[in-house]
Every structure is written in C-alpha cells, then in structure tokens.
Amino acid sequence: MIKQGAEITIVPSGRLEEMKLSGLAGIRGIIIEDLCYNGRKNKGCMVCLDTPYMGEYTWFIPVESIKIKE
C-alpha cells in the first residue's frame, strides 16, 4: 500500500509509454489517492505534480512508474 502524502518521482516504464505520458518521467509529486486495491485492473495513484504537465497538476500514474522518495 502506498501512503497518501508520500513524495514520489515518476520513472519511465512501458505502461507510462503506452499511455503516451513519457514526458512525465523525472517529474516529482505527491500521492493524493492510492488506486492499487485488489480487483482494480489499472493499478496506480493520483499524483499532484510539483510543476504542471500539459497545463494540469493532477495525473494518474501507473504503479510501475512510481518511485517513493526515501
């Protein structure tokens, strides 16, 4: 389970590329909602970015592209 409020960095992944969101790689943000529960087909999190991407701050990021800041 990923904690709400955790700081993350978006890393490249095949899933991110499939979503045509490779430009998000390297951007930092904060988890605002964990969507990795059982039964969900597309696991990931809603993330509020530090800087806007395509004019938006809030994006769904697949779990494969989330690196939690330690």
Rank of each mutant, 00 (worst) to 15 (best):
M1C: 09
M1A: 12
I2F: 11
I2V: 11
G5W: 01
G5T: 08
A6R: 06
A6T: 10
A6I: 00
E7P: 04
E7C: 09
T9C: 13
T9M: 13
T9D: 10
V11E: 14
V11H: 09
V11Y: 09
P12F: 06
P12K: 09
S13T: 05
S13M: 02
G14S: 14
G14H: 11
R15F: 10
L16A: 07
L16M: 04
L16R: 01
L16S: 02
L16V: 00
L16N: 02
E17L: 07
E18C: 07
K20M: 10
K20S: 15
K20I: 03
K20Y: 13
L21E: 10
G23V: 03
L24T: 06
L24V: 03
G26C: 02
I27R: 14
I27W: 05
I27G: 12
R28S: 15
I30K: 14
I30V: 15
I31R: 11
I32S: 05
E33Y: 03
D34M: 04
L35V: 10
L35I: 10
Y37R: 11
Y37H: 14
N38R: 14
N38D: 12
N38G: 04
N38I: 12
N38V: 13
G39M: 09
G39V: 10
G39C: 03
G39I: 12
R40F: 14
R40I: 14
K41M: 11
K41G: 02
N42F: 15
N42I: 12
N42R: 14
K43Q: 11
G44L: 01
C45N: 09
C45Y: 01
M46P: 04
M46G: 09
V47I: 04
L49Y: 05
D50M: 04
T51R: 09
Y53W: 08
M54K: 08
M54V: 03
G55Q: 05
G55A: 05
E56A: 09
E56Y: 13
E56W: 11
E56L: 07
Y57K: 07
Y57M: 08
T58E: 12
T58D: 07
W59T: 00
W59P: 01
F60W: 01
I61L: 03
I61A: 05
I61N: 03
I61F: 03
P62M: 01
P62Q: 00
E64M: 01
E64H: 08
S65V: 04
I66W: 06
I66S: 03
I66N: 07
K67W: 10
K67C: 12
K67E: 14
K69D: 12
K69N: 14
K69L: 11
E70K: 11
